[in-house]
Amino acid sequence: MYFIKEALSSFRKNIVQSIAAVTTVALCLVVIGLILMVMYVGGEIIEGIEKKVEIEIFFDNPETIQSSGRVTARMDKIQEIENTVRAWSEVSKVRYVSKEQALDKFKKDFQYNPEVIQNIEGNPLPDSLRVSLKNPRKVDAVANRLKTIQYVKDLAGDLDKNVQYGKDTVKRLFAVTRWVSIAAGGFAALLIFVSLVLITNTIRLAIFARRKEIGIMRLVGASNWFIRWPFILEGMFEGFIGAGVAILILVGIWRTLFTNLASGKVLAFLSFQIDQTAFIKLILLLALSGAVIGSAGSFIALRRFLKV
């Protein structure tokens, strides 16, 4: 077809320029791809941490409740709370940890520091409920809601002390996540802009090389789209090849990273995995952005040229 033929021949004629454009697109997309991969992995890690965010409700010991005159039937009430909270839509899991279980866990955590364990008399640890959330970002709201439950007030006494969820850690975590995404996004946007400018320049040169032809085309009444198509295709083509190169490089990086990971040399402590579908999505996204960057660049280059 005419347009494709024209686009290809123009690509070949300005081969040096074309290669330059392809290379820049490829580089930009590699960096963008890496950013996306890192963001993905980072996201996985953060998600892992977020999953560990849970709200702990520590219950006063039976003796304390007795002596302060608060009502008994303690275990029933804890059971009641557990059932109520489990029914909330934000909550994914509620776990009862008895004081004995808590002590076992504590002993296990500190098994290499026997002196710590030795210093414990009896079992100072309280019974507790551990509430995990579907969306950890709602931890604040859920915690506040927990504090309004009458039985929690009855059994946990000092609410501020006994309803805990590492408030500051959670907040800092979310702040970091947000800033990292914003910074990476800004960097990616900058790179897209750079590749756009470079493609625009290449196409501008291609147009310049053919300005006589375009002049004649306009003179004899070729429609603007007819004139535009070959250049848009050329830009798209360059963007596409650039994306292809970028994808190959990224696959290479991915492979080496994972062979090393599998053999446990690098980053072995991070047990993350980029699964196949996410990677295919990434590839498609890059190919698409290559084509979009290419055609958009051409369009910008042509805009001024085709003003009637």
């Binding site: 032809e213 004649i216 003179l219 004899v220 009444g221 603007n224 009637v308």
Partner: peptide, 22 residues
């Protein structure tokens, strides 16, 4: 309208001093 201009030009043949051949 500017998109109609090409169609106007199809009705006009045009010759110049410098030929404008490719």
């Amino acid at each position: 309208r500017s998109w109609k201009v090409p169609f106007l030009r199809r009705n006009i043949g045009c010759v110049f001093q410098d030929f404008k051949l490719l």
